[in-house]
Design a protein around this nucleic acid. Structure first.
Length: 689
DNA sequence: CGGGAGACTTAGGAGGCGACGA
DNA sequence: TCGTCGCCTCCTAAGTCTCCCG
C-alpha cells in the first residue's frame, strides 16, 4: 500500500538500499576553493512570506471569449503511397528539415525559426509500414499484420502556434449510470435496515468496493467520506427520490464498439487515436500519500459539465439525448477535445490524443531536441553556476546551488503548493530545512549532504551525497537562523529559476535537465555495458541495466510486487534444484572419467564427453537463473517504464538496436513502438544524442 | 510582479490477460 | 488443464510550466 510507504519504516529501510550516491558521472573537476565564504550574506526577512496561507476562489466561472478559427475543408481520403519498409532508416531525408542542427540558434524547434507547415491538404501524406505480430486463429501461427502509418515527422509543422486546422470527434463516453441494488439487499445502520435513495446507495457502494483496501481504515478517508455521503443524503431529503435513471440499461455497450465509435477523431485529414475518451466515473477520491482529501466524493460528470472543443466546420459531437454540453468551442490553439472541472481540487481535466498521435509525437520529439541543445551548452551552464556559488548575492547563490542539485541529482523543479490541499511533498525549490542534513565528515567522505523528503506521488527520496566544499558552505549559510519548517531556498522559486534558465538557453527549464541527464546516462551506460559478442539476452540485460541506472537517477520507484517474495523463493528453489543437478552431473562426470581411466576404450571416452557437456549445460542454465535472480532482485523497487516512456530519447535505443542487431520488439512493446514510430523510422545506427 | 487558471507532461497502481510450466 | 506470474493497458493523480490579469 503506497501511502504507507513513507511511514512504514521497514519498507523505507529496504528502499534505502537501492539508493546510493548516484550521479557521480556528472561530477566535474573542481578547482581549489580559494573563496572562504567570508562575506556573510544576510537573509533577514527570509522565510516568512513563502509560508503564508493562500486562499483562492476556484469556482469563479471565468469563461473566456469564444475564439473562432477558420478551418479548411474536412476529411479527404489519404493518398496511397508505399515508401519504405519497417523499420525504414532510408526514407527520403531531403524532404524534411534537419533537427540536429549544429547551431542551436537555428534549431528548427525554435518557435520563431520553425519552418512553415504547408497547407496540410496539399501535402502529400507519407507513410510507413507498421508491423504487428498476432496469433492466428489456430492459436499457433504468428501472423504478421501490416498497417500503413502516417509519417507525420516528414511533414512541415505549424508555425503560427495553432495545433490543428480541422478537428472532428464524437465526444466523450460517460460513465454508466448507477444501477440500484436489488431490493432484498439492505443497508443496515446501527443494526437496523435503512432505506437509501439511489444516489446515497451509490456512494455507499463506493465505500463498500474499497472495504478490503487499506484506505478505508484511515481516519481522514473515513471522515471525508462520511461528510460527503451525509451531504448526498441531505440532498435526497430535499429533492425526494429524484435519480436520473433515464439512460439506465442500454449502456452495456461492447468495449470494442465504444472504442471504434468514440476512440478516434479526425485531426487534419488523419484519423488519430484518442487517449482517454471515457469520462472518469464517480467514486471516492484516492489521493497519494497523506492526502488531506482522501475519501471525498468524486462526483459524477454530466454532459452539462463538459466543454467540447472541435473545429467549426466539423460535425459537432451530440450530447446524450435530453442533455446539453456546457459549451462548444473552437480553439485550435489547444490540443484537447473535451474538458471538465473536477470537484476535488477544482482543476480541469482533459480528453486528449494518444501518445502515438502527431500532436503528442511532435511535442515529444521537440522535448528531446531541447535536451540535445542543452547538451551543447551544459558545460558553459555548469561553469556559470559554479561561478555563482561565489556570488555576493544570496539569491544568486541559492539559485546556483539549487540548479546544481537539479543537474547533479535530477531533482524536480519543486513548485509551491497550496497547504492543506494536497499531500506535503516537495521538489528542489521547495525543499525545507528539515529535508537535508549536513555532515562535514561521514565515514570516509567529506561534506556529505543527506536528503530525505517526499517527492512527487509521495515517493521518498533518500540520498547521501558528498558535495563540493563551496556548496556545503553555502548550504550551511542558507540554514542559518532557520526553523526546520522554513524553506531552504527562501530567495528562490521555480519561476525565478526558470526565468534564469531561459536566459541561459532558449527553451531551457528545470525539467530539461532531467531529460538531458537521463538520456545522456542511457547513452553512456549502453556504450559502457554492451559487449558486441554477447548473446542477445545478455545484451538485453545490459540494456536493462542502463535503463535501471537512469531509473535510479530519476528515483523512479515502485512498490515491490505483492508476490515478490514468493516468486523470488520459487526462483531460488529452481536455483537450488539446478545446483543439485549440477553436483550430481559432476559426480557422474567423475565416475565416467574414472571409468575411462580404467578401460581406455572409445565408449567410455564418449561417455566422458557426454557428461562433460551435460555439466557445462547445467552450469549455463544455473548461470542464467542466477542472472535472472539478480536482475529481478535489483529491479525489486525500481520502475523502468517511466524513464523509458518519458525521459529516454528513443533514438538512442533505436540506434543501439540497429547497431547490435537487436529486434526492436525486444525493448519496445507494441504501444511503445507506436509512440516512438518517429524515432524508429528516423534514427540510424550512428545516432548520437 | 504575483497569483491563479489553464494546458500539458510525468507518475505509479490496479486489474486484465496471455504465456508458460507443472 | 490449471495456476502462476509478469507484462500491458488503462486510469487518473500529481507534477511542470506558461499565460493572463489586476
Amino acid at each position: 500500500d503506497k501511502e504507507h510507504r513513507h511511514k512504514d519504516h521497514k519498507k523505507d529501510k529496504e528502499r534505502e538500499k537501492f539508493k546510493h550516491s548516484n550521479s557521480e558521472h556528472k561530477e566535474h573537476s573542481e578547482k581549489k576553493h580559494r573563496d572562504k565564504d567570508k562575506e556573510r550574506l544576510k537573509h533577514s526577512d527570509s522565510s516568512s512570506d513563502k509560508h503564508r496561507q493562500k486562499h483562492k476562489d476556484r469556482d469563479k466561472d471565468k469563461r473566456r471569449e469564444e475564439k473562432v478559427y477558420r478551418s479548411p475543408a474536412g476529411i479527404k481520403s489519404e493518398p496511397e503511397e508505399d515508401n519504405g519498409f519497417y523499420p525504414s532508416p532510408q526514407h527520403n531525408k531531403s524532404s524534411r528539415q534537419e533537427y540536429d542542427d549544429e547551431d542551436p540558434k537555428k534549431s528548427s524547434w525554435n518557435t520563431t525559426k520553425r519552418p512553415k507547415r504547408g497547407n496540410m491538404s496539399t501535402t502529400k501524406t507519407r507513410k510507413m509500414r507498421f508491423i504487428t505480430y498476432k496469433k492466428g486463429t489456430d492459436g499457433k501461427k504468428v501472423k504478421k499484420e501490416e498497417e500503413e502509418k502516417w509519417k507525420w515527422w516528414e511533414e512541415e509543422r505549424y508555425t503560427d502556434g495553432s495545433k490543428w486546422r480541422f478537428l472532428e470527434h464524437k465526444g466523450p463516453v460517460f460513465a454508466p449510470p448507477y444501477e440500484p441494488l436489488p431490493g432484498k439487499v439492505k443497508f443496515y445502520y446501527g443494526g437496523k435496515p435503512m432505506k437509501l435513495s439511489a444516489p446515497a446507495e451509490e456512494v455507499a457502494t463506493f465505500f463498500a468496493k474499497m472495504l478490503d483496501h487499506e484506505y478505508t481504515t484511515k481516519d481522514i478517508f473515513r471522515k471525508n467520506f462520511f461528510k460527503d455521503w451525509r451531504k448526498v443524503r441531505k440532498m435526497d431529503m430535499a429533492l425526494g427520490e429524484v435519480f436520473r435513471s433515464s439512460e439506465t440499461d442500454k449502456i452495456k455497450e461492447e468495449n470494442e464498439r465504444l472504442l471504434q465509435e468514440y476512440g478516434f477523431c479526425i485531426m487534419d485529414n488523419h484519423k488519430e487515436r484518442i487517449g482517454n475518451f471515457r469520462i472518469e466515473p464517480p467514486g471516492l477520491f484516492r489521493g497519494r500519500g497523506d492526502h488531506p482529501k482522501m475519501g471525498m466524493l468524486k462526483r459524477r460528470i454530466r454532459p452539462e459539465d463538459i466543454i467540447i472543443n472541435c473545429s467549426k466546420d466539423s460535425k459537432h459531437p451530440k450530447p446524450p439525448p435530453g442533455t446539453k454540453w456546457k459549451e462548444v468551442r473552437h480553439d485550435n490553439k489547444v490540443t484537447w477535445l473535451a474538458s471538465w472541472t473536477e470537484n476535488i481540487q477544482g482543476s480541469i481535466k482533459y480528453i486528449m490524443l494518444n501518445p502515438s498521435s502527431r500532436i503528442k509525437g511532435e511535442k515529444d520529439w521537440q522535448k528531446y531536441e531541447t535536451a540535445r541543445r542543452l547538451k551543447k551548452c551544459v558545460d558553459r551552464i555548469r561553469a556559470q553556476y559554479r561561478e555563482d556559488w561565489k556570488s555576493k548575492e544570496m539569491r544568486i547563490r541559492q539559485r546556483a546551488v539549487a540548479l546544481y542539485f537539479i543537474d547533479k541529482l535530477a531533482l524536480r523543479a519543486g513548485n509551491e503548493k497550496e497547504e492543506g490541499e494536497t499531500a506535503d511533498t516537495v521538489g528542489c525549490c521547495s525543499l525545507r530545512v528539515e529535508h537535508i542534513k549536513l555532515y562535514p565528515k561521514l565515514d570516509d567522505q567529506e561534506y556529505v549532504v543527506e536528503f530525505d523528503f517526499l517527492g512527487k506521488d509521495s515517493i521518498r527520496y533518500y540520498n547521501k551525497i558528498p558535495v563540493e566544499k563551496r556548496v556545503f558552505k553555502n548550504l550551511q549559510l542558507f540554514l542559518e537562523n532557520k526553523q526546520p519548517e522554513d524553506d531552504l531556498f527562501d530567495r528562490l522559486n521555480t519561476s525565478i529559476l526558470n526565468k534564469h534558465l531561459q536566459e541561459l538557453m532558449d527553451g531551457l527549464t528545470a525539467k530539461v535537465f532531467r531529460t538531458y541527464n537521463a538520456s545522456i546516462t542511457l547513452q553512456q551506460q549502453l556504450k559502457e555495458l554492451t559487449c558486441s559478442d554477447d548473446s542477445i539476452p545478455a545484451k538485453i540485460l545490459s540494456y536493462n541495466r542502463a535503463n535501471r541506472a537512469v531509473a535510479i537517477l530519476c528515483n523512479h520507484q515502485r512498490a515491490p510486487p505483492k508476490t515478490f517474495e514468493k516468486s523470488m523463493q520459487n526462483l531460488q528453489n529452481k536455483i537450488d534444484e539446478k545446483q543439485n543437478q549440477l553436483s550430481a552431473a559432476r559426480k557422474q562426470l567423475k565416475a565416467a572419467k574414472a571409468d575411462h581411466k580404467a578401460s581406455h576404450d572409445d565408449k567410455s571416452k564418449k561417455a566422458v564427453e557426454m557428461k562433460r557437456k551435460a555439466v557445462q549445460r547445467i552450469e549455463e542454465q544455473l548461470m542464467k537463473l542466477q542472472v535472472q535472480a539478480t536482475d529481478r532482485e535489483e529491479n525489486k523497487q525500481i520502475a523502468l517504464g517511466t524513464s523509458k516512456l518519458n525521459y529516454l530519447d528513443p533514438r538512442i535505443s533505436v540506434a543501439w538496436c540497429k547497431k547490435f542487431g537487436i529486434p526492436i520488439e525486444k525493448i519496445y512493446n507494441k504501444t511503445q513502438r507506436e509512440k516512438f514510430a518517429w524515432a524508429i523510422d528516423m534514427a540510424d545506427k550512428d545516432y548520437e544524442f
